[in-house]
């Protein structure tokens, strides 16, 4: 974008919004919004503390495990649904229901089934991420060029070879798109899990700070979380663009 003939760098609107935040914070209008500068200094002082690193590692562990299971289960299930009519008929209604269902309401059920520990948090994270990954993998496989499938068959590909050397790669652009959206949903899942199931990780920090009206701390942790989620999504978007050269020419 250009303004008065000057080219503005990307995301320069963020500077404007940061200024608005700072002014609102300095005016003392509400305790809920401290000045941004105060939030930033708090952020740097908080980052080194044991409480923060513990929260980060707990959250990262639950998040990583949750996303891992969502990807490792979701992609093969999606590909199988795209290739087999029977599996598709069996699973598609459930996938669609869970994709749009308010999963937060299921969390108490998970607590009853799997207890109040890390296991339930990981399952919650997986449940938030997996459905869109399944649906996108399925869509990716469904649009594979028919002659690529025939090519694999005519050159004698075993089902396993066809799966790993043709179907997976041919569906990869859609799969990565699904993983990117799934990861964003998993961030929601892990925080909701940590708030509802057991108060650990970032969820515990949010509880602690908001209950004690430490708003600068609250915002600092929130900014860290937003930044992490945003960079993750940008990284996956970058991977998607890396392979887009062949997405159009399949």
């Amino acid at each position: 974008m250009t303004l008065f003939g000057y080219r503005l760098p990307a995301m320069s609107s963020l500077i404007l919004w940061a200024a608005v935040w700072e002014i609102v914070g300095l005016s003392g209008w509400t305790f809920f919004i401290p000045p941004l500068s105060e939030v930033i200094t708090t952020l740097f002082s908080v980052i080194g503390t044991p409480a923060f690193t513990k929260a980060l590692s707990q959250t990262a562990y639950a998040f990583g495990a949750g996303v891992f299971f969502a990807v490792v289960i979701g992609i093969p299930v999606g590909i199988l649904m795209g290739k087999s009519r029977i599996i598709d008929e069996l699973l598609l209604p459930w996938v669609n229901i869970f994709l749009s269902a308010p999963l937060t309401a299921l969390v108490p059920v998970l607590m009853v089934l799997f207890g109040f520990g890390m296991k339930s948090i990981i399952i919650t994270t997986t449940l938030f991420a997996i459905w869109i990954i399944i649906l996108n993998s399925r869509a990716g496989v469904k649009q594979i060029n028919r002659s690529l499938v025939e090519m694999a068959r005519s050159f004698g590909a075993s089902p396993l070879d066809a799966f790993f050397k043709v179907y997976f790669w041919a569906a990869l652009p859609e799969i990565l798109g699904g993983v990117r959206i799934g990861v964003i949903r998993a961030v929601k899942g892990v925080i909701i899990g940590q708030l509802l199931i057991s108060i650990v990780g970032f969820g515990a920090l949010f509880e602690l700070y908001s209950n004690n009206f430490l708003m600068a701390h609250f915002w600092a942790v929130l900014i860290v979380l937003f930044a992490l989620a945003f960079s993750l999504s940008e990284f996956l978007g970058y991977l998607e663009r890396r392979i887009s050269y062949y997405a159009a020419s399949r």
């Binding site: 690529l148 004698g156 075993s158 050397k165």
Partner: peptide
């Protein structure tokens, strides 16, 4: 038997060398 396809049916993510050797790779 080997098949040559109307729309080429090449692997878009693989270079020419891998595409040409793909039939042998599957064997």
């Amino acid at each position: 038997r080997a098949f040559v396809f109307q729309d080429f049916a090449l692997l878009p993510w693989a270079n020419v060398l891998r595409n040409v050797s793909f039939g042998l790779e599957l064997r």
